[in-house]
Amino acid sequence: MIADLVQNTLDGLSAGATYALLALGFTLIFGVLRRANLSFGPAIMFGCYAATWTHVNFGAGLLLLALITVSGAVLAGAYVERLCFAPHRGGSAIAAMVASFALWMQFEELATLIMPRHLYAFPLLYEGDPLALGPFTLRIDALAMLGAALAACLALWWTLYRTRFGLAVRALIEQPAAAALAGINVPWVFVRVFALASAIGGVAGYLVVASHGQITPMLGMWATLKGLLAMMLGGLGSLPGAVIGGLALGLIEAHTQWYLGPQMRDLIAYLLLFVLLAARVPWMTTRSAS
């Protein structure tokens, strides 16, 4: 009993760490631009497909594939920013969101056009046996995911709280008008935030496909949904909230899957979101900055 609980918690945390990364990327864009970027996941999918394509055609090592995934995601993210968000700056939030939905379709079409099979293999992060520790088995790739996700969280924290760029991002999240008045070049910060968020998303995307060992065009939708869900669970626009929301989502999924079965897994998470929204829990309705 206890062993199951601990094992599920470990599994949940390692999945949750990836969700936390996705939620952080989402939150950065949402907090700074006050816009939902539906193409966040599909841009990550684009990066992963670029890596898969390289792997299929030329074969490449894990590190190189990670690099291609992240740069592909950043490139796609910059494309989304230029096309959907830069033209609607200070304008309609709905227009930007709908435009980002259009690019979502574009990315999916592009992926299926260039790589028409529904499923492609992706080199696994780790192919050996899981590590046995008393009654628990620890999947090495799950551990690596947890470690990499935590490292990315720390790097982001350092960027936001210890650098000049981070100061500008936080200022922009808290008081956009005052940030401009303080002399911060707002459009330039927007571009860099998009690049940073996409890079974080790219890390998450790489960890997911490399631990599953396969990729489908559904990855884009999956990443957008998980990121959105985790961000909303943690409270819109809050960075620590994104981490908490991501980990919480991972834990909820792991435990419901074990106790109620896999078909209940997503249902429970959405139900929880629905209840929290309907109950107007304070942290979800106020947009705090940190």
Binding site: L167, A168, L181, A182, I184
Partner: peptide, 17 residues
């Protein structure tokens, strides 16, 4: 329009951005 969640010192650094 100070930055409420940032410290007093960080607010001043933002002014020197």
């Amino acid at each position: 329009l100070v930055f409420p969640a940032m410290t007093v010192l960080e607010n001043m650094h933002a002014g020197a951005y």
